[in-house]
Simulated scan of single mutants.
Amino acid sequence: MTEHDRGGDYHRPDEDEGERLDRHWNELLQELRLAQTGTQILFAFLLTIAFQSRFQEADQFTHDVYAGTLVASALAVGLFLAPVSFHRMVFQQRLRDRLVPIANHLASAGLVFLIAAICGGVLLALDVVLSRTVALVIVALVLVWFVGFWYVLPAYVRRTSRGTGE
């Protein structure tokens, strides 16, 4: 029997609710490891920009974009780390049924702030090498690209799939 015949790897009729929650928690942790690392690197890089002499000479627009990007990055880091803290606080309290859906929402919110931080970082860099108008157009396209691949495509697949999905 192929994975397709079983309905993909999301539906496992042989697992109980506890096993399903454990599997979902482990899948979410794997995703968070990737997101946390990249976001923390971006955040650390952004922290160094403010101390560059050339940045001090930048205009108010650049400073505003930087501030928004830094805050979005910090919020993304916080949201990606929140499930870890949440788990520590409810560890051994038999609350996995509450932990998993809340952690999923925290991670999803973190992705929104990560998109904002990435777009802000791209705008900061492109504004140095291109005209501001061109930089803004490119960042708008980058935003559409992220929204398309991170939200529209999965929503489309979810809507058009006949799978059992969890």
Rank of each mutant, 00 (worst) to 15 (best):
Q36A: 12
Q36L: 14
Q36F: 10
T37R: 02
T37F: 14
T37Q: 06
G38V: 08
T39G: 05
T39I: 11
T39S: 05
T39E: 03
L42N: 10
F43I: 12
A44H: 05
A44T: 14
A44N: 06
F45M: 12
L47S: 11
L47M: 14
L47F: 12
I49N: 03
I49H: 02
I49C: 03
I49D: 00
A50Q: 04
A50N: 04
A50F: 10
Q52T: 15
Q52K: 14
S53H: 03
S53I: 09
F55E: 06
F55R: 03
Q56Y: 11
Q56I: 14
Q56M: 10
E57Y: 08
A58R: 03
D59H: 11
Q60M: 14
Q60F: 13
Q60P: 12
F61Q: 06
F61S: 08
H63C: 11
D64V: 02
V65L: 06
Y66L: 04
A67D: 12
A67W: 12
T69M: 07
T69G: 09
L70Y: 03
A72Q: 05
A72T: 01
S73E: 01
S73L: 04
A74E: 03
A76Q: 04
G78I: 13
G78A: 13
F80H: 14
L81M: 12
A82P: 04
P83D: 02
S85V: 15
H87Y: 09
M89A: 12
V90G: 13
F91Y: 03
Q93K: 13
Q93V: 09
R94W: 11
L95H: 12
R96L: 11
D97L: 13
L99H: 05
P101M: 01
P101N: 00
P101V: 00
P101I: 03
I102V: 15
I102N: 03
I102E: 07
I102D: 04
I102H: 06
N104Y: 14
N104T: 15
N104A: 15
N104I: 13
H105M: 06
L106M: 02
S108G: 15
A109N: 11
L111D: 10
L111V: 14
V112W: 00
V112K: 05
L114H: 09
L114G: 08
I115M: 03
I118H: 05
I118N: 01
C119I: 00
G121S: 04
G121I: 01
V122P: 13
A125F: 15
L126K: 03
D127I: 01
D127M: 03
D127C: 01
V128M: 15
V128W: 14
V129R: 05
S131D: 08
S131W: 00
T133Q: 11
T133G: 13
T133F: 07
T133W: 06
V134H: 10
V134K: 11
V134S: 08
V134E: 07
V134Q: 10
V134W: 08
A135H: 01
A135R: 04
L136I: 05
L136N: 10
L136M: 07
I138D: 00
V139A: 00
V139K: 01
V144D: 02
W145H: 14
V147M: 06
V147P: 12
F149N: 08
V152D: 06
V152S: 06
L153Q: 04
L153W: 08
L153S: 07
A155L: 14
A155S: 15
A155K: 07
Y156Q: 00
